[in-house]
Design a protein around this nucleic acid. Structure first.
Length: 544
RNA sequence: GAUCCCAUCGUCUAGUCAGGUCCAGGACACCGGAUUUUCAUUCCGGCGACACGGGUUCGAAUCCCGUUGGGAUCACCA
């Protein structure tokens, strides 16, 4: 049987790290075995699914280079459509079949009735199992008359069910734990459990690779396969990715971080703990939105981000867009994610996509949940930045600028950005680092690092040397790195000083600090006029 | 609470299935040193783990049992 894997996100939000890892492993598995990787959008939750979220997910997957063989925009005869909301006829046909064969039945309970049953079970310290009701035609007619619409439930198997998981081994659920799950909701849409089974089967999926949060669901799915007498696919459940504090990584972490920061700020300003109007005003959100957010009534990412910006706290990176805006390279992110819960078995860590594919082995996936380590990701990103050729790096940098219009490099021609990247390639881990490190190129120093001024300008004749340097540079016929380097070397030889005694006063004058790339490169990139102006400014500012 | 999953340096992991080659290897981080005009890069070194308790065995990180700890799931969400 040919290998077919699928990634099936629901479009209720943007793509986050857990989803990236699942999609990546599915793709690696398909590529390794010459199979196909499908993308399906699970939009059966009509209240929460949005077209915008679906588009965002497609965009993020494309940015990551996680290209699907079949799915939206890559239609294949026989397997589409790839949005579940467009597949209702398919589901209903199977539900009719199940109803006719007696494997499923209509249930008329209201939410209130079910809640009451659950409350009774919980009071008796028993686990809730749905109890089938055998209703006569009159009762059903009465329910219908009062406006009830039935759901369809699957009659659960009466025997134990075993999942043969490719990673975890056999996982059993006993018959008495199986419940009659809802397969069609009152709104006529299938539940996730039902749609996932029908689609995986109809799309020929051979291996379901997903997060371990689905492990307990698998027995439900197996029950459906059994009722239909269909052969189920293979299953493999990936360990979850956790935060440093061991909680599950989720988008809610952003809300959590912002809430904590807001509470700290409230304490600091000694404000009324219930009054958030000041924050609403400061962040431009409505008072209601902020009050609701602080009362944990919602976890709006927009609100969380507004608060974080105002209070200057860093939100955890969770969503793909966070990493893109953070100046990460998609290939580095992919490489790092591959190493979360999997390893090639040897000491290699920097593995570009093709090498990941070649090394891929499902049986090497771990059972233990892994914590997301942003520092190691930053290191990995630095490795990729160092090894990329400048043209590739410049293209990647353009993609960064597309989402970070506030970067000082926004609008700069690629040619000139390339020169900056060449200079900073060994010194940055992310493009965001570059914005920070190269800031002095864009803003003349207005404050000077006191220690650096003392050491390199005031002491040891620094200022006098700086004046000589300025004159020598001003006399240069051509302003280029090589010529400048030659001139500075010559100056050091003539005056019998070490190069550091030339370079350091220059750095302080040009940048306000003792840190910059190679001094001749810095001068060249800064340009003649700007460099000489800055030297002059430093000389007059620090003259005794 | 019930059911299920998991357990090696602070973190990601190799080693576990087929017990000895492991007083446990690599990487990130951290600390120190060398190179470098500064910062980086690069290179060297250091720190640091088999959760605990029993058992099986000549021998256990590896097999078994228990304890503890962590996690997931218990919806007309996916």
């Amino acid at each position: 049987m040919s290998v077919r894997t699928r990634f099936a996100p629901s479009p209720t939000g943007s793509l986050h790290v857990g989803g990236v890892r699942t999609a990546l492993f599915c793709l690696l598995h398909a590529r390794r075995h010459g199979g196909r990787f499908l993308l399906r959008i699970e939009d059966t939750d009509r209240a929460r699914s949005t077209e915008e979220a679906a588009e965002g997910i497609l965009r993020d997957l494309r940015w990551l280079g996680l290209q699907w063989d079949e799915g939206p925009g890559a239609e294949q005869a026989g397997t589409g459509p790839y949005f579940q909301a467009q597949r209702l006829d398919l589901y209903n046909a199977v539900i009719d079949q199940l109803l006719a064969s007696g494997h499923a039945y209509e249930a008329w309970d209201t939410h209130a009735e079910l809640d009451a049953e659950r409350a009774i079970a919980s009071a008796a310290k028993l686990n809730f199992r749905y109890v089938r009701k055998f209703l006569d035609a009159d009762t059903i007619a009465a329910y219908r008359a009062e406006g009830r619409t039935p759901v369809v439930r699957l009659a659960a198997p009466r025997h134990d069910l075993h999942v043969e998981d490719e990673i975890l081994g056999q996982v059993t659920q006993t018959a008495d734990e199986l419940d009659d799950i809802v397969i069609r909701k009152a709104d006529g849409f299938p539940t996730y459990h039902f749609a996932v089974v029908i689609d995986d089967y109809k799309m020929g999926v051979s291996l379901v690779l997903r997060g371990q949060e689905h492990l307990m669901n698998t027995h439900k799915h197996l029950g459906i396969y059994e009722a239909l007498n269909w052969a189920p696919p293979k299953y493999a459940h990936l360990p979850l990715i956790a935060n440093p504090d061991n909680t599950k990584m989720s988008k809610r972490d952003k809300a959590k971080t912002s809430r904590e920061a807001a509470r700290r700020a409230q304490v600091e300003r000694k404000g009324d703990p219930k009054d958030w109007s000041w924050l609403a005003e400061a962040t431009g959100r409505t008072v209601d939105d902020l009050a609701g957010f602080m009362a944990k009534q919602h976890d709006s990412i927009a609100t969380a981000e507004a608060i974080a910006t105002f209070l200057k706290v860093k939100l955890p990176m969770i969503e793909v867009m966070d990493f893109r805006k953070g100046g990460y390279l998609p290939e580095a992110l992919i490489n790092y994610m591959a190493l979360l819960g999997w390893s090639p078995g040897d000491d290699r860590e920097v593995l570009p996509f093709d090498e990941l594919v070649a090394a891929w082995d499902l049986t090497r996936v771990n059972k233990t949940q892994a914590k997301f380590d942003a520092e190691k990701l930053a290191w990995m990103n630095g490795e990729y930045i160092k090894k990329y050729d400048l043209d590739t790096l410049t293209v990647a940098h353009t993609s960064y600028l597309d989402v970070v219009p506030t970067s000082p490099f926004a609008g700069m021609p690629a040619e000139r950005r390339r020169a900056f990247l060449a200079l900073y390639q060994p010194r940055i881990a992310t493009f965001a680092d570059l914005d920070e490190a190269a800031r002095f190129f864009f803003i003349r120093p207005t404050t000077w690092d006191a220690k650096a001024v003392q050491k390199h300008l005031l002491a040891d004749g620094g200022l006098e040397r700086l004046a000589l340097i300025r004159d020598a540079l001003a006399a240069l016929p051509e302003w280029a790195a090589a010529e400048i380097q030659l001139a500075l070397d010559g100056l050091a030889a003539t005056h019998d000083v070490k190069l550091g005694q030339i370079a350091q006063p220059l750095r302080v004058a040009l940048t306000g600090t003792a840190v910059s790339p190679q001094i001749h490169d810095t001068l060249a990139l800064l340009g003649r006029t700007e460099s000489l102006d800055r030297l002059q400014a430093a000389l007059s500012t620090h003259a005794r």
